[in-house]
């Protein structure tokens, strides 16, 4: 084996080890270290330090909390986990599976609004759906929620 191919092979192996180590460091620490998203309770519990920093917030769209302005493409809702809720504001149409009770993960910043109430300003709204796949029952149409939510002005 020539010395150049030996070098290349060594580099490749080193690259593999670094990539693997990186992957494990990112997720190996479990909850204590880096988590993909915070729950509403965890976000609030972080106190002052959490404001105006890029974070992810995950939970369920609190039923009945959705306010959608179809003309301004402006969306407001609450993300809930357990008994804790955070108000989320987002611009643009949400993904088609967005509805009451759906799981969501939002990327953005928690900011203090003028009225003293804090709002999570979402830059990116993602759907976290469940592992259930069901055909609609008789008379039910798939995506009825989305249809009524997005087509009309419900706020």
């Amino acid at each position: 084996m020539s010395s150049t191919s030996r070098k290349a092979a060594t580099l490749t192996i080193a690259g593999v080890i670094v990539a693997a180590a990186f992957g494990y460091m990112m997720f190996g620490g479990l909850e204590s270290n880096v988590v993909y998203f915070l729950t509403p309770a965890e976000l609030v519990a972080r106190g002052e330090g959490v404001y105006d920093r890029a974070v992810r917030l995950g939970g369920q769209v609190a039923p009945g909390s959705v306010q959608w302005d179809a003309n301004a493409l402006d969306l407001k809702f609450r993300v809930r986990e357990g008994t804790h809720e955070v108000v989320v504001h987002s611009k643009g149409a949400p993904p088609q599976m967005f509805r009451d009770g759906m799981g969501v993960v939002v990327e953005g910043k928690y900011v203090r609004a003028a009225n003293g109430q804090s709002v999570f300003e979402s830059k990116n709204l993602m759907i976290k759906h469940s592992e259930e796949y069901r055909a609609p029952k008789d008379g039910q149409m798939p995506q009825e929620m989305y249809k009524s939510l997005i087509k009309g002005v419900s706020s």
Partner: peptide, 9 residues
């Protein structure tokens, strides 16, 4: 069902 244009989508 969604064969009509939806706001923003």
């Amino acid at each position: 069902p969604i064969t009509q244009p939806c706001a923003g989508r």
